[in-house]
Design a binder for these strands. Structure first.
Lengths: 340, 340
DNA sequence: CTGAAAGCGCTTACAG
DNA sequence: CTGAAAGCGCTTACAG
């Protein structure tokens, strides 16, 4: 990367570096004629500001980091899409880091981001994350931080979530109304607030319908697909097996379908399934899957907007706001009541 | 972001900045005792090297950019996953840029990356891209560049692709063997080499089976989902409608299913469908979809590895290598022959 | 309106 | 083994 510097430009134009620099950033101190000359030359030789020098001097990087558990997942890639849409518009660059649901990895990532490489951070926590010291470290350094979806409720930072209690309540109510009485709640971690809220919604729906809560129907899954499938097989092989499944993550729904196929359990006749998912394809499954769609793109866009406000210290209330977006229940054939 | 600098560290340790800097990077010039002291202190106060100062000085950013058409797509998110796996291991940071299949956006992105912000670039071209001047600009500046999947064949840079001719040949052969005679090829752009190769494979398979080529069955799709659906509706409403569909992109297969449902065209009885796709879920569709799975994760990992070699100028042959990975045909129910 | 100079925080060739 | 000094390429307060 041999590059053109301000010094070279200044030399060729017979101007000082300062003048060229100011002309390039359209300073009012510089005459229009000079600006024109400089701009033309800069364009001709394809001059590009050295980002490191500029960032070092200005102490701003115009870069944000998005830290999340994974990316090969419709939800998170839609989030990135949303983030990119704002970032691009505001001239920010987006670094991506994946924790792979691993707490230590998440800690290592946030530790590395403290050196000013980024102006702000968006994070969605790993399923293993129970402590928030690594995030508080960022706060202490005044690093703008926004949490999304899988947030730490106790932290005083802006959070963007969906209405987890409500959507779980509605989903479980939907299952109950379609005749389910033994509804298994598949979750991915019981540490995260998102799951706590969904569990609360689940319990509240049961209570509202006078269905007793049964802790045996809470299944905690992991990041290991094979293990999860095994666990589900066990669950669905029980004598008193569930007649409804409420999956808190898209990736848990797929093995449910697979295990049901394998064990000849009919959906929705024998068991009804509903899952959080953003896949359009859910409509084409056999049977089509009832889903709760989270506004993933909007979450990304919203989180990024808040982060940029925070970075630019514009219109930010001293008390961090919680933004709660609404998920949508999309009823399909995996939960319809079968009238015999 | 109030930060600890080398100067502060040096002050507290009563050492020179140079010594502290060298100690931190484990220079052989520094005594073990001093190194220990410095390292301990650095850890205590959570010192982090300022990335911009360091990058400016060393002219290396330890950052790469991945430029691609979109991300809310299983293929590209799996690619990112692969990239991240190598980047993380090699201590590189990953910037993501989306062209949204827009040529001008792609040009703007690559133009912005010329200022040394990144040490290298991985790119997959937009469906609108027909000229490669913007990439040649990067080459001229000696920016390490690797193209993947949607590559510009004429450029002398390392390319990572899949065996598109072969996989198309096999897919079309599969359709022919299952009785199809009028096979529609849905493509996304005829500029990209990937499509040219797939088209060649398509034609070769027809020829090998003595089925005449019919240009009416080539359907060029766009980035506009609604438009594509309309086009497909027209195609499938024709009197002499196709009896087989070969979709070159995952996102074209889904509307095929939808339109078939709408028009009461049975899959696979009336029409057989095969598509490039990496979705596991394809197995759970109604009917399960025959796919050609591209090794997306491997492509990401491989491209990134080559890029890092290029950056570090280790073991790079003067002639850029073409890496061709193999896709896999996974036969499912959307293409099985129905024996009456 | 233009320019000289300081300094952002680091790394490294050189001196001692 | 340690340190003084130059310099990466930029921005900006200040002088003229």
């Amino acid at each position: 990367m041999s590059n053109i510097t301000l010094a070279i430009l200044a030399e060729e134009l017979q101007l000082s570096i300062a003048t060229v620099s100011k002309a390039l950033r359209d300073s009012h101190e510089i005459s229009t004629a000079t600006k024109k000359r400089v701009l033309k030359k800069a364009k001709d030789v394809n001059y590009q500001v050295n980002h490191f020098a500029s960032s070092l001097r200005k102490k701003k990087s115009k870069t944000i980091a998005v830290v999340m558990p994974e990316i090969a997942n419709n939800f998170f890639s839609l989030v990135i899409n949303g983030v990119e849409s704002v970032a691009q518009q505001k001239g920010y660059h987006v670094l991506i880091y994946l924790s792979h649901e691993n707490f230590n990895r998440e800690k290592a990532i946030t530790a590395e981001l403290q050196n000013g490489r980024v102006d702000g951070i968006m994070a969605s926590l790993s399923m293993e994350t129970t402590s928030t010291e690594h995030l508080e470290e960022l706060q202490k350094k005044n690093m703008p931080l926004v949490l999304f979806d899988r947030v730490a409720e106790n932290m005083a930072v802006p959070k963007v979530t969906t209405n987890d209690f409500e959507s779980a309540f509605i989903a479980v109510k939907h299952l109950l109304e379609n005749g389910c009485r033994r509804i298994a709640f598949l979750s991915v971690s019981n540490c995260l607030s998102i799951n706590k809220n969904r569990l609360k919604g689940y319990k509240a729906a049961l209570k509202a319908n006078a269905v007793p809560f049964n802790s045996e129907l809470l299944v905690q899954c992991t990041n290991d697909d094979a293990k999860n499938t095994g666990q589900l097989k066990k669950l669905l092989s029980r004598k008193k097996r569930p007649d409804g499944i409420f999956a808190s993550v898209e990736k848990l729904a797929v093995p449910c379908y697979e295990v049901c196929n394998e064990l000849n359990i009919r959906i929705p006749e024998d068991i009804k399934i509903i899952s959080y998912s953003n896949l359009q394809l859910a409509a084409l499954l056999a049977p089509s899957m009832t889903t709760i769609a989270q506004p993933a793109f909007d979450m990304g866009r919203e989180s990024a907007s808040i982060l940029f406000k925070l970075i630019e210290k514009k219109g930010v209330s001293p008390i961090p706001e919680n933004t709660v977006l609404k998920s949508t229940l999309i009823p399909r054939n995996s939960t319809v009541a079968i009238h015999k």
